[in-house]
């Protein structure tokens, strides 16, 4: 499986706290049996209201690979359609002040690292890529740093999730399945599994 040790590319700033998954992908686009095509629908309503001025539509951010957000990004619904739509638009990593928990887990499960940085660092990076959108940003999961030109700041990612990225074990099914005997042993130990259901 693909190891994720660093992500390099241009970055896209998306300002604001508490951006929920209904905004990332409105519920009407959840009427689907595959994730194909969701990249076009990402932030559909916000983009329509911004009339071409939404960061995902601005020409200078086309082809960006790193999304830079503020606090509690991805709160609300557990829909994996949200990170899927962001990823299918072209984003490979997200830097932010903080992430909602289910969204974070969904990103890890599809190999998209979400790393946090201090609010001043995030604001500085957002300002930098607003004024110089062509800047190459390097997000390094080994040294835990984000770099943009001469600017650099520390980043953080929980150890378990970071190891899954570095080792390429973010798609956990195989690893979980390799413990099937222990799974069965745990099942046998739990009284309630024998009672009902």
């Amino acid at each position: 499986m693909r190891q994720v040790q660093a992500v390099m590319g241009r970055a896209l700033p998306l300002l604001g706290n508490d951006i929920d998954t209904d905004r990332i992908i409105p519920a009407r686009f959840l009427k689907c049996v595959t994730f194909d095509g969701l990249g076009e629908q990402v932030f559909a309503d916000d983009r329509q209201q911004a009339n071409g001025q939404h960061p995902f539509d601005l020409p200078q951010y086309q082809g960006a690979q790193i999304l830079v957000v503020n606090g509690n990004f991805g709160c609300g619904s557990s829909r994996e359609h949200a990170p899927q739509s962001i990823a299918r638009w072209g984003i490979k990593a997200i830097v932010g002040e903080s992430f909602a928990e289910i969204f974070f887990g969904n990103c890890v499960a599809i190999g998209i690292p979400c790393v946090t940085a201090g609010s001043e660092a995030v604001a500085a990076l957002q300002a930098l890529i607003q004024t110089q959108p062509q800047t190459e940003v390097i997000l390094d999961l080994i040294t835990l740093q984000v770099q943009a030109g001469n600017w650099c700041a520390p980043i953080y990612m929980g150890d378990g999730s970071r190891q899954m990225m570095l080792s390429g074990s973010w798609d956990g099914t195989g690893q979980l399945l390799s413990q099937v005997e222990q799974v069965k042993a745990t099942v046998a130990k739990l009284p309630y599994l024998a009672w009902s259901c």
Partner: peptide, 29 residues
């Protein structure tokens, strides 16, 4: 603790899920 199956190489817990509920929106994929 009762549902812990193993500690994974990443340090995370492999947790047994006793009851799994599914619906039409998040299961087809």
């Amino acid at each position: 603790d009762l549902h812990t199956v193993s500690v994974l190489p990443s340090g995370q817990t492999q947790l047994l899920i006793g009851l799994h509920l599914i619906h039409e929106v998040t299961s087809p994929q």
